[in-house]
Simulated assay, not measured.
Amino acid sequence: MDIFESVVVAFWVMLPAYVPNNVAVLAGGGKPIDGGRTWGGRRILGDGKTWRGTLFGTLVGAVLALVLSASAGEVGATLDVSLPTFPPAAVVALPLGAMLGDIGASFLKRRTGRQRGAAFPGLDQLDFAVGALLLTFLGAFDWAMDTFTLPVLAVVLVLTPILHVTTNVAAYWLGLKNEPW
């Protein structure tokens, strides 16, 4: 697999994990997952992690995975790249894992005394990708092993922070986020 194919495959398979958190921002609001509860004098997650955002983000990511699966042959032929389709377990695991990774990062931020929106370099850029990969390897192990080769994983680790920073700055400029990280 050459570098072009590794980049295309990495972006393709991670797209259902990249989209959910952005969608959750748009659909957010509603009841917080932690119900306002605290632990050790701090909120467990905070108001930014809602049931509606989590559900909507996961649903949109799953629908996107289905659309990508349906178009893999045509898009792959156009790009001259063999693009994988998504088995049912990966359809759910990638977006749900992304949302759970972000929720886990929020939990860690609260435990370290960071307020909602506070930067946590490294964690902010990779939490959702790590969550998506972990859940996908648990739920669709054989597919994940075949798809996330070392070159593809390397691209994911480089591409994800770049995309994360770029989309967050754009969302900030558009007034969708209160901070650019």
Rank of each mutant, 00 (worst) to 15 (best):
F120W: 11
G122Q: 03
G101W: 10
A90I: 11
A118R: 08
D80V: 12
A119C: 01
M145F: 12
D146Y: 00
A118C: 07
A132M: 05
G73S: 10
A140Q: 04
R111V: 04
V81C: 11
A89H: 02
L135S: 03
S82H: 13
L79A: 03
R110V: 04
F141S: 14
A105F: 08
L134E: 00
G122K: 06
T112K: 15
V92L: 15
V81T: 14
A90C: 13
D124H: 07
A105H: 12
G131P: 04
L134N: 00
S82W: 00
V91R: 01
L108W: 15
L96Q: 09
R116H: 10
P87L: 14
A132D: 02
F86T: 08
P84L: 09
Q115N: 08
P95Y: 02
G117M: 06
L94N: 02
R114C: 01
V75F: 13
A129M: 15
S69K: 04
G117E: 04
R111F: 05
G131C: 08
I103H: 02
K109L: 10
R116M: 03
S106D: 09
A72L: 04
V81S: 13
S82C: 00
R116N: 09
Q115F: 00
L133N: 06
A90M: 14
V75H: 08
L68S: 09
L135W: 03
L133R: 05
S71E: 14
L79F: 05
L126K: 00
A90S: 14
R114V: 02
L68V: 11
P88E: 10
G97P: 07
R110L: 01
A140G: 06
F128A: 08
G113V: 12
G117V: 03
G117W: 05
D127Q: 04
T136S: 12
R116V: 08
T136W: 02
A132C: 06
P121W: 15
A144K: 08
A90V: 14
D102C: 14
P95I: 02
D142N: 13
L83S: 10
G139I: 05
D102R: 10
F120D: 00
D80T: 14
G101N: 09
T78Q: 06
F120T: 08
A77G: 12
A70M: 12
L123Q: 12
L135F: 13
E74I: 15
